[in-house]
Write a protein that binds this DNA or RNA. Structure first.
Lengths: 335, 335
DNA sequence: GTGAAAGCGCTAACAC
DNA sequence: GTGTTAGCGCTTTCAC
């Protein structure tokens, strides 16, 4: 009933524990074990379906072959798609993923990192919460654990980071709306003081300024993070009924979903002429009538760059280059 | 740099390792440690921020405080929502979740379970792949590990299972379509030989029979699992152009997404009069014009029942009751 | 009441 | 070339 241990295998193979360990870890040649013994041991291992106890390995080596992934919310398609790509690529290299959602809650994020530390997670892929997490992450660096941030950077830490040029994303999108003859363009964003959200607003603002269109504060709506969707919809409805609007940019996909629901409730001519561009794609946008354009982040590329950075750091413990990998967004105009 | 061990704490507190261990694990009173010593030890633990190494604990106790979650695809909202609920509830009880996607691939699923075993995962929440996994799961039971299946059952194993009455779901939905005056109702499903998919087709079939509407094989489309979406869309378009259809049931949400894309491409009058009902809700459905009705599975309830079953089994090792928890779907008619 | 010590399964330095 | 053994950090039995 109890699984075989290396001791059992050693006994069956008439070899010592060390020899078995060397064979299992592919160090037999290097350690000069005879071919005959190697064969015997391998046969026994196979016959009994022996697999080393990874907990014991971890305790001994200090490694766990587990990568910790910390995101804002795993049920957000942006994060779950990235998680899926990371999972697949990590498995190819023999790493497992353990993930959790922070809900942008600082305490929860700190607690998660502590938990991961206790579990001796080998490396961390983190989309950090707004602020305050710096010290905790610095402690990871102090322990020489590979870390890569994505989605949001913490510039003070100077870490490897995989991100996106959000400024250009909304800049181009705003220009596209203006190119379609829209000039009263609303901007619906979330009330989080993080760079990638600020950049999106700034791209919009500067695009307008560059095109000599006045920036109108009444067209900007900042919704509290984690606010109940019904309330968000209400606020967006108010925005659209109180202001003259013929185009709108949503700074996240879930805001766009709320926005589309709001527009749907405001039936009638008002929303016929409104062009909508969302940030981050969503299945709903392509299907929506009229189609919703989107500023798409390259999910697969982000995931790939993040896991690659981790694998690089894992294999070259000494050099931890500080790389900033910034992808461009892709503006997908649907009509 | 290196974290404190129980040994360090014992030294600082002028106590033995045993005493420290007892205090940490709340067994001090029971073991008759003096109040003064308890205080001292607790203070030292706090001062140095000591946390036990969970790997060492696992090796010693054989427990990991980790629950393994195996789903079909974590990027499918059905699974990621359930994953999120499970994560939250598990954390409250001090358990972490490690998850993976099987893609309905038997080998991958087996491998995942092996990996989890080596990691000494304490319990398993599994949405099993179509077939062939029974022996592997039985081996878990043999090791007396708590297991709960969800979404799909493996009746031969007689395990705890959390599921949904799919038959009633499509039965009611079909009746609703007929009630709307639709009689040429297509059924688009996936080519997987699993009960919950069969049941959906059977509910549709028997509803028609019961209402004296002939069952027409030409209105049934079975799409291969994991088929490229473009091809699926093409097949659905063919179905709709070659057959007289005024209502359609999609057996999964991703098929419905493909179907809506297909209908969108077939512009014109043909899709004006088609009523659509999907299985499993999706943000896109509420927003879609015209609205898409849905047969909704109670995600939160499913997650809750699954994790509860695990926690029950975890706390009462002896009795492993074989419970089948079957929820009803909810038909949401949107118009 | 408290502490010494065995042992969970493994790796690797060191003997032989 | 191969085997003995210490020790990773912890829990818990048993002796004092």
């Amino acid at each position: 009933l109890k699984p075989f241990s290396i001791k059992d295998i050693a006994k069956k193979a008439n070899a010592s524990i060390t020899t078995v360990s060397f064979v299992i870890n592919g160090k037999a040649k290097e350690k000069g074990i005879s071919d005959a013994l190697i064969k015997t041991v391998e046969q026994v291992v196979k016959d009994y379906g022996y697999k080393p106890n990874e907990i014991a390995q971890s305790l001994r080596t200090g490694q766990s072959k587990i990568i910790g992934l910390i995101v804002e919310d795993i049920s957000n398609p942006f994060f779950s798609s990235i998680a899926r790509f990371i999972e697949d690529m990590a498995y190819l290299k023999g790493y497992k993923i353990i993930y959790s959602s922070t809900d942008n809650n600082l305490d929860k994020a700190k607690e998660l990192i502590t938990t991961y530390k206790l579990r001796k997670v080998d490396a961390y892929i983190i989309a950090p919460p707004p602020s305050g997490i710096e010290n905790t992450i610095q402690s990871l660096i102090d322990e020489r654990k590979p870390v890569v941030l994505f989605d949001r950077n913490l510039p003070s830490l100077n870490l490897n980071f995989v991100g996106v040029n959000h400024f250009d994303g909304t800049y181009e999108a705003t220009k596209a709306l203006v190119g379609q003859g829209k000039s009263n363009i609303a901007f619906v964003t979330v009330d989080l003081d993080v760079k990638q959200i600020d950049d999106r607003l700034e791209g919009y603002r500067q695009a307008l300024t560059g095109l000599n269109i006045p920036y109108n504060n009444n067209l900007i709506l900042k919704v509290p993070f984690n606010q109940d969707q019904a309330l968000t919809i209400l606020q967006i409805k108010n925005l659209f009924t109180n202001q003259q609007i013929n185009g709108v940019l949503f700074a996240t996909n879930y805001l766009a979903i709320s926005g589309l629901k709001a527009l749907k409730e405001i039936k009638g001519p008002i929303n016929k002429e409104i062009s909508v561009i969302a940030y981050d794609d969503h299945e709903a946008f392509e299907l929506h009538t009229p189609c919703v354009s989107t500023i798409k982040q390259p999910l697969k590329e982000i995931a790939q760059a993040a896991i690659q950075s981790i694998l690089d750091q894992l294999s070259a413990k000494d050099a931890v280059p500080n790389q900033q990998i910034i992808f461009s967004t892709q503006l997908i105009i649907r009509s």
